[in-house]
Structures are given as C-alpha cells and as structure tokens.
Design a protein around this nucleic acid. Sequence first.
DNA 1: AATGAATGAGCGTTCATTCAT
DNA 2: AATGAATGAACGCTCATTCAT
Lengths: 211, 211, 211, 211
Amino acid sequence: MSTIETTANKANQGPGKREQTKAANRKAILDAARGVFAQLGYGATTVRDIIRGTGLASGTFYNYFKSKEEVFQALMDESALRVRPQLKQERLKAKSFEEFLYGMFSIFFNYVVEDHRAYEMMRANSGQIRVRMDTPEVIAGFDELRVDIDDGITRGIVPPVDAGYLTATLIGMAFEIADRMVQRDDPDPVAAAKFATSMIVGGINKVPLEK
Amino acid sequence: MSTIETTANKANQGPGKREQTKAANRKAILDAARGVFAQLGYGATTVRDIIRGTGLASGTFYNYFKSKEEVFQALMDESALRVRPQLKQERLKAKSFEEFLYGMFSIFFNYVVEDHRAYEMMRANSGQIRVRMDTPEVIAGFDELRVDIDDGITRGIVPPVDAGYLTATLIGMAFEIADRMVQRDDPDPVAAAKFATSMIVGGINKVPLEK
Amino acid sequence: MSTIETTANKANQGPGKREQTKAANRKAILDAARGVFAQLGYGATTVRDIIRGTGLASGTFYNYFKSKEEVFQALMDESALRVRPQLKQERLKAKSFEEFLYGMFSIFFNYVVEDHRAYEMMRANSGQIRVRMDTPEVIAGFDELRVDIDDGITRGIVPPVDAGYLTATLIGMAFEIADRMVQRDDPDPVAAAKFATSMIVGGINKVPLEK
Amino acid sequence: MSTIETTANKANQGPGKREQTKAANRKAILDAARGVFAQLGYGATTVRDIIRGTGLASGTFYNYFKSKEEVFQALMDESALRVRPQLKQERLKAKSFEEFLYGMFSIFFNYVVEDHRAYEMMRANSGQIRVRMDTPEVIAGFDELRVDIDDGITRGIVPPVDAGYLTATLIGMAFEIADRMVQRDDPDPVAAAKFATSMIVGGINKVPLEK
DNA sequence: AATGAATGAGCGTTCATTCAT
DNA sequence: AATGAATGAACGCTCATTCAT
C-alpha cells in the first residue's frame, strides 16, 4: 500500500523519476567527460577519470555507454548536432555562393568561440604532439557540405571545379583558421569568416588587408 | 708483417659487425613503428606492438629508444628532414608568390604520394576517429612557412593580409586536399598543386575547371 | 509498514555478504603475505608471490594494499599491536626492575614461540643472508621500552646507567636469544626469560647454571 | 722470441700484467660495491649500479663474481677477515673472562667506528624498514666465539651457563650497542666496551654510571 | 679477458569491463 | 538500475645474465 502511494507521488512529478534520473545521469556523464577529455585529451582519459567527475559508481557508466569511445562520439555528435541545423538553415537561405560561404564560416567560427571547451577537446595536447580528431558526425557534416557544393555546381551557382578538393579546402581552412583564431587574445569570428570567404571567392588579392 | 697489415686494415675496415647490426636493428624498429603507427594510430600503438613487428626481444627496444614517443618523433623528424630542405630550395628559387606556392604544394603533394606510409602515420584512423598529429619538426616546418610569408609581405611580393590566417589556410588546404588525393584511384599531385595554387592566387573563379 | 521494518532490519543485519568477502580477502592476502615473507624474506618477495598464494586476481591486491611495503607493515603492526598491550600491562604491574624485566622477556619469548610464523618474518633468510627488519610499529615498541627505562632511572628503580645502551642490550638479547631458542628441539621461553633477566640483574655469575 | 722478451719485461715488473689488472678490477668492483651497497642498501642495488662505479663493462662483472650476492658476501667476508685475526689474538692473550670480553667488545666497537661505511651496509635503510644482515663469514666469526665460550666453560674460566644463550647475548649486545654508538655525536668505543663487559660480568649494578 | 648489445622473464601497476549483490 | 569489488589481460619497463665479437 505505502509502496503504491510512493509510486503515485513519483508519477505526479512529471516524467517518471526513473526517466528523470536516467537523463540526469547521462547528462552528468557527458558533462564530466567533456571536461576531462578537454583537460587530458582522448588518449590519456580513462573511464575512471570520467566517472570520478560524476557521483556515480564505475559500473553505472556501462548502463549508459558501452565504452570510452562511445561517450566521446556522443560528445562530438552533440556538438555537430547543434551546429548542423544552423548550417542547414543558412544554406537554404543563401542567395549566392558568397553568402553561402560566409554563412558557413560564420556559424563555424562562432561555434568555436562559444564552445571553446568542446573545441579544445578536438585539439588535445598529449605531451609534445598536437592531435586533431574527427568523429563520424563531424565527417557527416562535411559530407553534407560536399553534397551542397555538388548541388551548387549543378545549379550553376558554384563554378564547376573539383568538388572534392573544394570541400577539402573549406574544411581545412575552417579548422586551421579556427585554431589560430582561438589562440588570439580577442578572437574575432567575423574577421575570420570574412578572410576565409574572400579567399575562396577572389583569392588572396581580394582578401581584406590588415589595418 | 701481415699481422700489422691486418690490424691496420681492421681499423679502417669500415663498420664492424656490431655497428652493422645496431644500424639494422634501429632501422627494423623504425620500419615496424612506421607500419604500426599508420595502422593503429599513435594513441593505440603500444611499444609491444612495435617490437612484435621486429624479431627483437622486448628489452632491446629500450636500447634504441626511450619510449613510444621517441620513436614517433624520430619518424616524423625523418620525414620532415626529407621534405624541409626541398621546400627551402624551392622557396629560394621562386620568383613570384605564385611560383612559391606552386613549388610548396608540388613538393608536399608529391611527398604524400611517394611516401604514402609515412603520411598515413600523421593521419591515422584509430577506431572511428580520424587523427592528425604534429610533432615539433612538423611544427617547425609550419613556422618556416609563416616566416616566409611574413617576409614576402615585407618585400611586397605577398599582399599584406593576415599572415597567420594565410599560413593556416595553406596548411589546412595542403593536408585536407592531400587526404582526398590519396584516396583517389590515380592520385595526381600536379593537378592538386594547380588547384591549390590557383585557389589562393585568384579564388574559385580562377581554379581550373573539371574536364 | 512492514517495508519500513524490513528496511530497518536490513540496516542492522550485520555485515552484508560484500563486507564478508572483503574481510575474507584482506585476511587471505595477509595470511599469504605472512607465509611468503617468512619463506623468502621481505626483499625477495614480490607482490605477485603474495597474490599467487591467494586465489585472487592480481589486480585485486591493489584494492587492499598499495604496495608490498604496505602489507608488510600491516603484518608487523598486527604483531606489534598484539604484543604491545601485553607489555604495557606487565610494565604497570611490575613492582621491581627484575619483575619488569622478567615480564618483558616472558611475553616476548612466549610470543616468539606461539607466533613462530610472524617472528620468522622479521628474521627471514633470503639466500645465505640473515636479515632482521624493524617497522615503525616495532620501533615504536622499542621507544616505549626506552621511555620506561628512563622513567625507571628517574624513579630510582633502575640504576642510572646509559639508558640507550641498556635498551640496546635488552633488545639485542631478546632477538638473539629468541633465535637460538626457536632452533632448539623443545623451546622453553621460561628458561630463556630467566637467563636473560638474571644476566641483566646480576651478570653472568647470577645466571642459573645448566643442569 | 719477441713474445718472450715482452713477457720478460712484464716479469720484471713484478706480477704478470694480467694478474695485476685482474686484481685491480676485482678491487675496483669491490670498492664500487661497498659504496653502492652502503648508499642504496642490498635490495635496491643492481649489478649495473656497481659496474657503473667502475670503468668496466657490464659483462666483465661476471668474470669476477657470479652474482650480486657473491660480491656482497665477498665484501662482508673481507670485513670479517680483517676482524677475526684480531679477535683470535685477543682471545689467546686474555687472562680472565673479563679481559676476554673486554678485548672482544673493544675490537668490535673500534672496527665499527673505523669502518663505518662497511658497517652501514649491514644496516641499510630501504624505505621505512630498517634491515640488518649477517653473512656466513660473520656467522662463522660468531661460531668461533661460541667455541671459545664452550672452551672457557670447560676450563673453568667461564661459569657453566647456557653457552648458546651467552653467545647470543654477546652478539645481540655487540650489534645493538654498536648501532646506538655510531648514531651518537662522538662515538666512544671504550665506553661501549666497558658498558658491555661490566653488564655481562656483574649485571646492571656493576655497570659504570653516567657522569 | 673485455666488451656491451641482446635477451626475455618478471616486475609493479593500470584499467576497461563484468557480475554478484 | 546502481553499486563497487573482482577480474585478468596488457602495459611500460628493469635487470641479471648470456654471448657474439
């Protein structure tokens, strides 16, 4: 009897307590993992490091993720999922290739500045060796870009250049410029996006000059 | 008499058997390491994986290198040392910024095609995660590039754009385009170098079109 | 209602199965360690020797002790903790220096005979070399003895001799005589205690003669 | 012919050069070992530590000693061999048991003060645990003592007490008092010998009092 | 006899994962 | 579902000893 009452109370609280704690635990793990990965880098991070950051027991980790790799991917995907819809919307509303590019770069550089922490995770320093990592969701995001470029070429908006290399160029620039940007004292995503866009559109001679 | 001669000869005989095996062992370790790093990625590679790839005993590894990191750096430096002098020479003989760029990209893309194995090492797939690693020698190479660009700007050969972002652009493009290139059936470093150069020089509208 | 009771009972139920196994494992490790240390000596004993002596997995050792040294000290402390209270009580009830000495030696020699195994641990034969080891608890025991002697001198019960050398004499005799005693066919702690006591009290001429 | 001449030259130099270097190497190893054992303790010392202290190659060690244990014993025996003849002489000239004891203790305590280094080796500190080691030669020295005591009893010079326990008493006192003595600011072997002798001869009441 | 690289067993320890509670 | 102790493979590394030179 008392048991039923207790359950009823729980039921009134909105979503079942079970579901609530489950979500909370998942979040706790992800939050802890984000911090630890950023601090130690993927390779050096252990599952124990992650759970230590939550109040949970080590075994509990495995109720939520199958492995260290899985959390890491969940984390990356989370980032990508946040950015991808923005990118998609931007693409849809772009009226020219230049606008399209500028929109892309803006979103990415803004994301990098805002979500510094997650970004650092992709650029962890273990010892002397700088490492950069790309996960499937990130790669999927790039693939979308590729599709859009192909599409743009078909529709005559983008000149019919080597689409693979163009995608590569955009991605390479995006990551590498982002890296420099965040190391500067006062990161300016607008300037970065302008630089990148004008480089693609008109080459070095069209790039805004340094004041 | 003959004894004296023999002794004399001995002294001049070139490397003794000891030195020969030492050199051979060092090479064996480096070769094995190159393969394993390329296959498993730096993080996932263990010292034991490397020695397993040679016929040597586990302890022998430590006669040649203090750690996994040390072999890795030896390997990277080896590559960088091979490429950097070429790059330097190219820089010296370049008469315009365009020539300079084309020379750089050519050398790099040719290196990637020729020394596939070493390049893969810098771009290992460990599990699902793509990784790029930069060692001190590689970073030093980047710094040289940066210095050259600054120099070019001073001398009026390169437009006075944001030199950091320009360097980032060149490096990002080089790696990312190289990646696509080696995945193609018939990698063409000349085409890649032309693409990259013309993108920088005149932007997308000056890039050679697909046939 | 009944639920509440059950829960309450549970809380008071005594050690759960978990606690039981934990205690059992700890004991297993200590027992194994005692045996191995006695057999091989401290220096030659490895953590693996110890765990091999239990049915446990190698990693499990580290759930209980951080190192070989830590088990060893736990073992020594265990012994010392068993003997020290007895010694203390004896000290308190002793009415003369002779009684005090006799009490001390009795307890020690009895302990050695009874707890042969633990004593051997302090006097291990590793190879040809006989070794004696003193841990902090043991040393603390010695210090107590020293304090008592100083105290006895102050109170006029013990002649004002060099207290450090007197302590040294008692300790040296105790260990060395114990060694001989346990090698004899029928160890007689009473005889040993009488010998030691009378040697201290009256010198060789007061020592009971051999029959 | 020339060979003979060469040999002759060497022969004039005293012992053959071979024998000379052999002896020198042996000495070098022993000297190095003495220092290292004293510094690191027996357990922590490696063969490499020892040879590092000589100019020799690691393999050469094994031309002189079969193992680490063997050097250690050689070292201990060397000490014992230095002391034993002195003890023997003392024994022979002693006219009473008291003289005999005093002679023994004097020699031992003097040896300890003089040869601090070697003595520390027997009392190495590894971590928290004090260790004392006795080697066969040392034990042999003690056995001689035992024989002398038996002999003294037979000849009526020593009271017919338990000879084993008496020997144990002498040894225990000797080592333990020596230990305290060397820790004092100004070690006084004469005082220590007087203390020990009078303790044995007349018990605590005959021991010289502290000034 | 001397050398010093090679050997490989073994060490202490970590850690992802399992599983009884 | 949560717990956290148990597991044992694997790791990096050391070192006594061997052996080709």
